[in-house]
Amino acid sequence: MRAVGVPGSGRLARREVRKILLGLLFVSPWLVGFLWLQLYPILASLYYSFTDYQILGTPHWTGFANYARMFLHDPLFWVSVRNTLFFAAVSVPLGVVIGIALALLLNARVRGLSLYRTIYYLPTMIPVVPAVMLLAWLLTPSIGPVNYLLGQLGLPEPGWLNDPAWAKPALILLALWGVGGSVVIYLAGLQDIPATLYEAAAIDGAGTWQRTWYVTIPLLTPTILFNLVVGLIGAFQYFAQAYVAGAFGGPLNSLLFYNLYLYQNAFQYYQMGYASAMAWVLLVFVLIVTLAIFRTTGRWVHYAR
């Protein structure tokens, strides 16, 4: 990047230099923030990740000790990984499927489309803390409305946030309540599908299901890709919902998500070095997953335009 400000040739016209300086002046807010609050911190946390750093005092170089401990000696780390992967593996695909299903239902000529869209999008407007409170209240065993209805239907009544096996499903329900955001994106994606394709399919005698499966879904794949990546990144950064749900007696460690554990290490155990190592592992993991997804896109994402 230095090459931008200090051109190697030295034969740049003054005009050119002035242009560069003017450009840099305009982007300087971002540039300063980037250098100060991003680039330096990234490098610093990489350094911390190789140290024993307990906030008071100075970091001591310990090589790969943090990483070794994380992978070999810290079962809680693996608990947090498992919790996070489980959450991602269930909530993201479910969100994609339900999001597409709702968008398809809405996309056809439906009376009151904009009303439905508003209704589906509305839950995403409820802030996290009230939303989790509401979740806990709705899912209260036996007197909450959800369990009451389950009981009436003769279904088992889970302990939800009170039960290690059901706490994550409860949060997955919460995530699905916010599926409206992706419905809007899918709707926009559907709108971009050229009508002529449907027409051609209709000529070939394709029914609704066939049109959906052979025309709509393939052409929606770029949007699916986007939602998948955003959903996964969101799942890997999951924090506030789990943290707040923990206040309602979330059963032991069943809501210990990766970032919750990272937060605990940093701000509760003061293990800044260890937490930094966790952050870097997350970064690398997210990069790998994202790259992997984009690698496979050739096989399933169709760009019609």
Binding site: T140, P141, S142, I143, E157, G159, N162, D163
Partner: peptide
């Protein structure tokens, strides 16, 4: 235990 624990959790908070 889950039965007992859920019963207690179902009481007014």
């Amino acid at each position: 235990y889950p039965e007992a624990s859920n019963l207690v959790a179902s009481a007014p908070n």
